[in-house]
Amino acid sequence: MSTPSPELDERLQADLVAYLDGELDAEQARRIERLLYSHPGVQEEVRKLEASWDLLDELPQTHVDERFTRTTVELVIDQLSGQLQSQQRSLPRQLRRRWLAWSLLFGLTAFATVVALDSLWFARQRRMLEQVPLLLRLEQYEEVRDVRFLKQMVEQNLVPLVPEPPAEGDSPPRSNQP
């Protein structure tokens, strides 16, 4: 190996190479040129660097035959068709998943509708049941004919608003019997 001149440290070597590669700015390039002019040792180093670098041009050009291009294109086509096949394979699965999601949504909607309708119907039934005691005494109330008097009788508990529940074992009250 060559022994570098005292000035040829690693930093200067890097600058010399960068100078040869045209990578230095104008000021740095001028500094290297001054150095080359005044130091034959640096000049010699640059010459050797250039000579060994130029030898790389002797490396043979790479030739690529048609077979290689065709094989690569075929590889790409294979991959593309592989992608398409896997997309096609996953298509029924996607459709099944989509069908399941729609079914679930439809089921949930139907259930919610039934629950809403059911609760509305029950509310109506409850209101009707609340009216049953009134209906059971309707004939008695009609006999009074005076609403104010009836209210007073109710307030004084002379006429019960709600019929008393039947005693255990009794038959249910029959309002249309005297």
Binding site: S2, Q13, A18, E23, K48, S52, L55
Partner: peptide, 20 residues
């Protein structure tokens, strides 16, 4: 990169110098 190329070129020069 500057450092990589510098070291590489110095190595190439040292290796190829006897042949040159």
């Amino acid at each position: 990169v500057k450092s990589l190329l510098s070291r590489a070129r110095v190595t190439l020069k040292d290796v190829l110098e006897p042949y040159l």
